[in-house]
Computed example of a mutant assay.
Amino acid sequence: MSALLRVQDLRVRFRTMGPLKALATGTKAPFIDAVCGVSFQIRKGETLALVGESGSGKSTIARTIIGLQPALSGSIRFGAQELIGLTATERMPYLRRMAMMFQDPVGSLSPRLTVQSLLAEPFRIHGVSNRDGGAEAERLLRMVGLPADVGRRYPHQLSGGQARRVGVARALALNPELIIADEPTAGLDVSVQGEVLNLLARLQDELGIAILIITHNLNVVRHMADRMAIMYLGRVVETGSTQHIFDYPRHPYTQALLSANPVPDPDAVLNRIEIKGEVPSMLRRPSGCEFHTRCQYAQEICRGVFPEPSASGDDAEHSFKCHFPLKHESGPRWEKSTALTS
């Protein structure tokens, strides 16, 4: 199946100081690279999870895809159309086909508008004048399991779960093919988290929507995602099917993340892997493999040579960037990797 969204070698850079200050202080590179050569694709109707610690570049990727943040280089193709380089006007037809749920469910809703006005807003922005705003708002509220009278409320009158459902409803307004959900369960009670995830799963089954879910909650990933991509310091270090990565992680960072995942069983035997040291600053990236400063398996080559993408022998879609990937059979815990030739 062809990709609905294809991100290739995406790079995003932020300036850390103005040109005059950089000149006065003698700073030659007054910027940080928040996203460094990230590539992935999403097929129609599937869910891909971007996973990683806070500050790893997940939300920056989402904002770049929908045009809120410019890319330094790379490619973002939606269907057959390249989005990087388009003007805001040229992007509008493609933005109708994708929608974003922002991390803060209440903060992403204008406090001056009622829920009904918020749900009608996408139709006004995209010039859809043949729809009745009130009727569309009621339809969307029913779709996400909220009563019609919620439409008369303002965002501050909503609970966290209700605000999140309104965000889902607004994302669905123009019948998108792709929803980007940035931490869709953040700040919600566990029971409400389950309701929101089940709602997204149901709507995906009914409407065939593809979902890019951004989270550090691995229980959400296991419940929702077909495939996952692990990010560290602005790079994807491992990607593949969710089940295969959970069962057979190859990158030491992935293994440590999975070992830290909470288990709802008080009698479970936990084998936590503690990552030593602090996350390096993006202003002073380590040479070679950027995880080598915290990796218990690091060798001399890791300190000087960045690893090429390698493939897992038993899953063609499972790839990783590690000189000494973990093994899951008898023998040494790691093996020398073989770089992909393609």
Rank of each mutant, 00 (worst) to 15 (best):
L174M: 02
R170A: 09
A210M: 03
N219F: 00
A210L: 03
N175I: 00
G208Y: 13
T215A: 09
E177F: 08
I213H: 01
I213W: 06
H216L: 04
I180Q: 04
L178D: 04
V168M: 10
L200D: 09
V221R: 12
L197P: 02
A173N: 01
L203D: 09
A173K: 01
P176M: 06
R202A: 11
V150L: 11
G208F: 15
L203F: 12
H216Y: 05
V166E: 13
N198M: 10
G151W: 02
V150R: 11
L200M: 15
Q193T: 00
A201N: 15
L203R: 13
Q193R: 13
I209D: 10
V221Q: 14
A201H: 12
A169L: 14
H156L: 11
N217R: 00
H156N: 11
P176W: 08
T215E: 07
T215V: 06
G161R: 05
P184T: 03
G208V: 14
R164Y: 03
N219A: 11
G167Q: 02
I211C: 07
P184K: 03
E177Q: 15
G160N: 00
R153C: 08
D182N: 09
E206T: 14
G160A: 06
R170H: 08
G208N: 15
V196N: 04
L178N: 04
R202Q: 14
V190C: 07
L172C: 04
T215L: 11
H156M: 06
Q193D: 04
H216A: 05
D182Q: 05
V220C: 02
I179R: 04
E206K: 14
L158S: 05
V220R: 04
V220S: 08
I214H: 08
I213Y: 02
L158R: 03
E195D: 12
E177C: 01
T215M: 04
V192P: 02
L200G: 15
L197E: 07
L172R: 14
A186H: 01
E206G: 10
V196W: 00
G167A: 04
N219M: 03
L200V: 11
L178W: 01
G167W: 01
S159K: 14
I214A: 10
D205S: 15
G151Y: 01
L212I: 09
D182C: 09
A186I: 04
N198Y: 07
P176D: 07
V150S: 08
N175P: 01
Y154M: 13
Y154D: 09
G194P: 03
H216T: 07
L158V: 05
S191N: 03
R202E: 11
L200W: 12
Q162S: 08
V192S: 09
G151M: 00
R153E: 06
H156T: 13
L218I: 12
S191V: 09
V190P: 02
G194I: 01
V220Q: 07
I180D: 05
H216F: 04
R152F: 00
N175S: 10
L178P: 00
